[in-house]
Write a protein that binds this DNA or RNA. Structure first.
Length: 478
DNA sequence: TGCGAGCGGATTCCAGAGTC
DNA sequence: GACTCTGGAATCCGCTCGCA
């Protein structure tokens, strides 16, 4: 049964505030706010509580990197007793404060902060406060252990083969979650996730509405992060979106720390516009007679496609993970969806009540993440219900990625032709819109389409041939 | 309802320029 | 020289609208 840790932290912080006669705040070792004391002074408004750093910490639930660096410079990560920190206006710290390191079995797990007042607390008072900090440390360690346990249960559910194995895993997760297990839930898949190490995953506390999270293999060498999210109802997806946004921030930060660009910036610095710019356009065009005409043979290709997708500045292991998990999608296009490593993406499955269908929800979340990575216009956070044809395409077996009909077109030398064909098909075969979308002359478009037909042996005036090529091109992006 | 005129988009053909 | 792209002109085709 999960404990109400938040309430316990609050009581302990209030206890410290009362002991020392000053408002206290509690942050974890990542400087994320866990609780803050509301000490009642005799004044109507205690100006001492209006310190900018403390106010910011309370309002944003965390401290800035600059403040963190300044504090850590006083050795608070190694201290076993109270540490006095003088004010430093240049670091944004306008008031001196006392840091009580919160330790458990010798390891720092958080910090209690007190603004210094005159006269300061006595040694006896600080000793008493440190004993309370010790109880907070035990509580933080207990919570971390409980969270890790849920990770194991969640991973067991998501990696179970099915049948009785999954039923057993679901039963264990249900027991661990308690009564909350019967409420509405969904799953978020964030991929690629930079590390398989559970210690590198964010805590459930730092992800809004998260009940459990764990890492799951993504392809051959990469990782993804699964987040189980509690919802108020299956009709309201806002909590899942908020959680996905928060975890994406963590993922982008982690990839950034590894020297790999995140976010959409990387996606727009190379290559051309998205191949699917016409995806939501009007219905079919004229469908008139056959194209033929002025092709001049099936000789060499331009070879002017977009450049490689391997991130620069990354370690070999990371590059391998990216190659397996992300860049594999960029087999031919140069568009934002696939041009290099455009950062991680998140997929959200359809909400369900209870945990029985968690396996299916996970498949949906994975598929949505896969679609968001392949087609950046769907992301960075994509919901299963919003990925359109990718609901079918992601369900196809891996071997379908190389359909012989589209094979020649997927060669690196013919990236531009493949992109031309895909935009043309996305635009429902309307030459004018396609040429406009690609920024080429319409005659150039006819020339390229003629080359596509020569390479593939398909007839773009035939509906089934069009469907086959369209599916093959989309599938190859996944 | 059927027909024809007008319009606009799609297609084809040809010539020529640029690049490798 | 081969390939690719661009531009102009002619033609085809489907759609809309007015009219009987």
């Amino acid at each position: 049964m999960a404990a109400d840790y938040k309430g316990d932290y609050q009581e302990l912080v209030d206890e410290i505030s009362e002991l020392l006669g000053a408002p206290a705040t509690l942050e974890n070792r990542d400087f994320e706010l866990l609780a803050f004391g509301t000490y009642d002074s005799d004044d109507e408004l205690d100006a001492s509580a209006l310190d900018p750093v403390r106010t910011r910490s309370i309002l944003t639930r965390r401290s800035t990197a600059g403040v963190r660096t300044w504090f850590e410079g006083f050795g608070i990560t190694r201290a076993t007793g109270p540490v006095r920190i003088p004010p430093s206006p240049e670091a944004g710290v306008y008031r001196g404060r006392i840091c009580l390191p919160v330790r458990h079995r010798g390891v720092v797990v958080g910090y209690v902060w007190l603004l210094e007042n005159e006269p300061g607390p006595t040694d006896a008072q600080l000793d008493a406060a440190m004993r309370v900090a010790g109880r907070i440390g035990a509580l933080l360690a207990d919570e971390a252990e409980a969270g890790a346990g849920l990770s194991r249960e969640l991973r067991a559910v998501l990696t179970a083969e099915g049948g009785w194995q999954r039923d057993m895993a679901v039963a264990e997760l249900r027991t661990a979650l308690g009564p909350r297990a019967d409420g509405p839930h969904t799953l978020i898949c964030v991929a690629p996730w930079p590390s398989p190490d559970p210690d590198d995953a964010p805590s459930t506390r730092s992800v809004p509405h998260a009940a459990a999270l764990c890492t799951i293999p993504w392809g051959a060498a990469a990782q993804s992060l699964a987040v189980l999210v509690r919802l108020r109802s299956t009709a309201v997806g806002a909590p899942a979106l908020a959680a996905a946004g928060r975890v994406l921030e963590e993922a982008e930060g982690a990839w950034g720390a590894l020297g790999i660009r995140g976010g959409t910036e990387a996606a727009t610095t190379e290559g051309s516009p998205a191949p699917s710019g016409c995806g939501t356009g009007t219905r079919s065009g004229s469908g008139t007679g056959a194209r033929g005409g002025s092709g001049k043979g099936a000789g060499g290709a331009s070879g002017k496609g977009t450049r490689g997708a391997v991130p620069r500045g990354a370690g070999a292991a990371v590059a391998a993970a990216v190659a397996a998990g992300v860049a594999g999608a960029s087999r031919y296009t140069g568009g934002p969806g696939t041009a290099g490593f455009g950062g991680p993406a998140a997929g959200i499955g359809d909400p369900r009540v209870g945990l029985a269908e968690l396996g299916a929800v996970w498949q949906e979340a994975r598929a949505a993440a896969q679609a968001a990575l392949a087609e950046r216009r769907l992301g960075p956070v994509a919901q299963w219900r919003g990925i359109g044809p990718y609901r079918l395409l992601t369900a196809l077996p891996p071997e379908s990625a190389q359909d012989p009909a589209a094979g020649p077109l997927l060669a690196p030398a013919h990236r531009e032709l493949a992109r031309t064909a895909e935009v043309y098909l996305d635009c429902a075969g309307q030459a004018g819109r396609t040429a406009s979308e690609l920024g080429i002359h319409r005659q150039t478009l006819y020339y390229r389409l003629n080359r596509v037909e020569q390479l593939t042996g398909l007839d773009l005036d035939d509906g089934e041939d069009r469907l086959l090529l369209h599916m093959a091109l989309k599938r190859a992006r996944l």
